[in-house]
Design a protein around this nucleic acid. Structure first.
Length: 508
DNA sequence: TTCCGACAGTGGGGTCGCAAT
DNA sequence: ATTGCGACCCCACTATCGGAA
């Protein structure tokens, strides 16, 4: 199959807003692709590469050669070129990668160039990724989408699942099982403003668990071999020896556990996320780092234990299996209750101890990996500040033509100026985007950069955020974590905004 | 007919590894 | 030694479609 076929299908998918039409376009192409190229086609049309990442981003793709006039490149040819690019490493590799990229882009038409560029930068923007592709695979293969979804949960990689479905239909999909040593797509949580609301959503008794601000881990043990994987299924076994040892110390040698690693201080309180994240990402000097920044692990789920696969069992049964397999000090603290007051108190205690919040879990839901089902609901405290808009950036995609991303500052009473604390684009409705674009253009101050418009610091906006963290990027040495817009405060003048000191008081 | 679950898009801060400078 | 880039940890929120109620 030619790359142009895939690029044209992608264009058709993008041009139809209706999901059923997108699915029809994708299924039509999948029904035509041969078995050797099915995995590539599924990958490209769901915004992935068979190689996952190849070390090429937006900067490397700045200048590409003139396109060909005639489309001749096959999926197999493109795939092997990308494979060669990924294989480049060591001194001179950047030049080698650029040369191969020039070959690649010189061998395809303008439409294919655009497609590849968006694919490689992870910005396909055709309104279809895994969710729509699952339905398309189902349609093209004749297998029920629930079977496709289940196989994806167990295999964690849709191109492989799609190829299997197209090759062998539902029978081949059913051959996917939980394999110890191969990560499963992790179950995700929705969110609620408080424990009371979360309990209401679940209706009846629920488990309320500490939410630790660390890194999600899935630990597999088969015999004396342990593998540890992140949320995106990357293998981090070598970076977390403490976790490997903890799993090897368990009595069972046949386990798949879900949990969180976190760096704790000697007094047991959690380090800021930056510390845990940095430690987990470090690949060098791990033996030294484990002395200075030791990691602890807390498990909250068992996908395999006691010689059985547990994914389809309800939460309370999986948790019972977890408690049987793991000593209590390695199990995430948890309270089962239907009482909102009790749940809120448990939440308040977790936060008081420095943790991120809680996750409220329905006792009856199976491990529904990969879908943000209503089985798990996270609850975190929310801070707010009234800050001043210092500038705004032109948006892209559906926000084209709107000033979207806000630069936020706190008042510095000493100078009467403002100290930037970060940016946000979240929480804005189309109506608000329209309104603020008008306001910012009215308040535009000085020369306007390419994509940034500086504005007179007059508009006050109420910002919600999860916390304040240390920053080397911003002048105050602080940045907001997960900042989002709640509302504008036309009733407040800039001189009445919250101060730098007020923000500093929130630093851990 | 209305409601709501699931999805995709639109970007945020921080940190590490690596190659180039 | 420093800088820039790519990858990947953590992520919130809105608009939209289409099936559920």
């Amino acid at each position: 199959m030619l790359l142009i076929d895939v690029a044209r299908t992608s264009a058709a998918v993008a041009s139809d807003a209706a999901r059923l039409a997108k699915i029809a376009h994708l299924a039509e192409l999948l029904s035509r692709v041969g078995p050797d190229e099915a995995e590539i086609a599924v990958a490209y049309l769901s915004g992935e590469l068979p190689q996952r990442q190849i070390g090429v981003g937006w900067r490397t793709l700045q200048d590409v050669p003139e396109p060909r006039q005639v489309a001749v490149a096959t999926l197999t040819e493109i795939d092997s070129l990308l494979q060669r690019i990924k294989a480049q490493s060591g001194a001179g590799s950047q030049a080698a990668r650029k040369a191969l990229l020039a070959d690649l882009f010189g061998a395809v038409t303008r439409q294919e160039q655009s497609f590849l560029q968006r694919l490689l930068t992870g910005e396909l923007r055709q309104g279809a990724l895994d969710g729509v592709m699952i339905e398309a695979i189902a349609k093209a293969s004749g297998a029920p989408s629930a079977e496709v979804r289940r196989a994806l949960t167990l295999r964690g990689w849709l191109p492989a699942v799609g190829a299997a479905a197209l090759r062998g239909g539902v029978e081949e999909l059913r051959a996917f099982r939980l394999e110890v040593g191969r990560p499963v797509a992790p179950m995700l949580a929705q969110s609620a403003p408080n424990v009371t609301a979360a309990l209401e959503k679940i209706g009846g008794p629920a488990a309320v668990e500490w939410k630790l601000d660390g890194v999600r881990v899935q630990a597999h043990r088969s015999g004396e071999h342990v593998g540890v994987f992140t949320r995106t299924l990357d293998d981090i076994t070598a970076q977390v020896p403490e976790l490997v040892e903890a799993v090897l110390a368990l009595p069972s040698d046949d386990l798949v556990l879900d949990g969180e690693v976190i760096a704790l201080r000697p007094d047991g309180r959690p380090e800021p996320f930056q510390v845990t994240g940095g430690r987990v990402a470090s690949k060098t000097d791990v033996a030294v780092l484990r002395e200075t920044v030791p990691l602890s692990v807390f498990f909250f789920d068992a996908l395999r234990a006691g010689g059985a696969d547990l994914l389809d069992l309800p939460d309370e049964e999986r948790h019972a299996a977890l408690e049987a397999a793991v000593p209590p000090e390695l199990v995430t603290p948890r309270l089962v209750t239907a009482d909102a007051e009790e749940g809120e108190a448990f939440f308040a205690d977790a936060v008081r101890r420095g943790h991120e919040g809680v996750v409220v879990k329905s006792p009856s839901t199976p491990y529904a990996a990969g879908r943000r089902g209503a089985g798990w609901i996270k609850v975190k405290p929310r801070h707010t500040l009234d800050l001043v808009v210092l500038a705004a950036e032109w948006g892209s995609g559906r926000r084209n033509g709107w000033l979207s991303n806000l630069h936020l500052g706190a008042l510095d009473p000493e100078t009467g100026g403002f100290v930037m604390l970060g940016k946000t684009f979240k929480g804005l409705t189309d109506e608000l985007l329209t309104w603020q674009t008008e306001q910012f253009l009215r308040l535009a101050a000085g020369p306007t950069e390419d994509w940034v418009v500086s504005v007179k610091p007059e508009l006050v906006v109420e910002i919600a955020f999860d916390g304040v963290q240390r920053s080397t990027r911003y002048p105050g040495g602080m940045a907001l974590r997960f900042a989002r817009v709640l509302r504008y405060r036309p009733d407040k003048r800039a001189e009445e905004a919250d101060t730098v000191a007020a923000v500093r008081a929130l630093m851990p």
